[in-house]
Design a binder for these strands. Structure first.
Lengths: 174, 174
DNA sequence: GTATTTGCAAAAGCTTTGCTGCAAC
DNA sequence: GTTGCAGCAAAGCTTTTGCAAATAC
């Protein structure tokens, strides 16, 4: 009966409140223009939609629906969360945004990110909560391989990796 | 104002009920033994836990918490969903299972899969709902690259790709 | 006897929806 | 005038939790 103190696991069951929740330091990749793409597709752009699109378009960190709403309310005081979700749905349907979980480091909510020209992956540090982005030609190779081997046509790639970032690895000697 | 009939999008907003929800035809990869691993770590194995472990261990399709519960109740009639979730938590804490979303094809629930010796990715067809698994040495390369370039130590890799499977691609001429 | 596990019911968290009125074309 | 958008409140769904009873060692 020696071993891991299972009862202690309880203590860390819930996702930790992380000190650096909103870190996204790496340079972002070239983003498509939500406004242009939607206009091209004949979607009506209302004032509220425009505000939401701009917020998502210019985000410097990964935003979830609540964060988008909060930001939008500064500009459009009466905007409702239903509008936020409905706009996000629109963007998802047209494949203009990617939906991320970021390894559920902060709960079950989703984060939204404008689709970039270059696929990239997300590295989530379990210890400090930092999210790093990383692009490599290997991702294109991977998609090509999927197509070759399975005949599968990739439209959305969600690659999330959990682990320990370089800073946390150093501090624990790993 | 020509273009996509945006209003129609409403019709498909909710995830479709898919005909082949439970497909997982590809060979599974070698799985670690949940029972052995937990025992080694000094975790107490009760009858209910044992039932849950066996169900998860031997699953031939991707199971969510509700499916695991349903199956478990055939053997342990009084088992409660809280027990299911607590057992899953245990497995997650010890990194014995991976949590998947399968691109939210069927809602926000999570699917659980015994950690395999070899990382693999999941291909989710937006059209027919089939889930395929795919392993390639590129994944190991990718992890190595992440380590080299970012100093990030990968513990959990979740790679989900949405798109069109080979059958659906054929049928639509793509 | 002490610590862990469990069921139960309630709550929490995030997202979706029905409905009604409003705005756009 | 017809179609789509938006606010509001309610509901939905999955997951988590507090507590007391039951179980394991």
């Amino acid at each position: 009966m020696v071993g891991y103190p299972v009862s202690l696991l309880r203590l860390c069951r819930r996702r930790p409140i992380l000190t650096s929740e909103k870190t996204q330091e790496t340079p972002t990749f070239e983003r498509r223009s939500l406004l242009n793409e939607l206009t091209t597709k004949g979607v009506r752009i209302t004032a509220k939609r425009r505000a939401l699109l701009e917020i998502i378009q210019n985000a410097t960190e990964h935003l979830d629906a609540a964060a988008i709403l909060e930001e939008a309310q500064k500009r459009e005081p009466n905007i409702d969360r239903a509008t936020v979700y409905r706009t996000i749905d629109l963007l998802k349907k047209f494949r203009l945004v990617d939906e991320l979980d970021l390894m559920h480091l902060n709960g079950e909510k989703h984060y939204y990110e404008v689709k970039t020209r270059r696929d990239h992956l997300h590295l989530a540090c379990f210890q400090c909560g930092r999210i790093e982005e990383f692009a490599t030609p290997l991702l294109e190779e991977l998609k090509a391989e999927i197509s070759r081997q399975k005949g599968f046509h990739s439209e959305v790639v969600r690659l999330e990796v959990g682990g320990r970032c370089h800073l946390c690895s150093e501090s624990t000697g790993m």
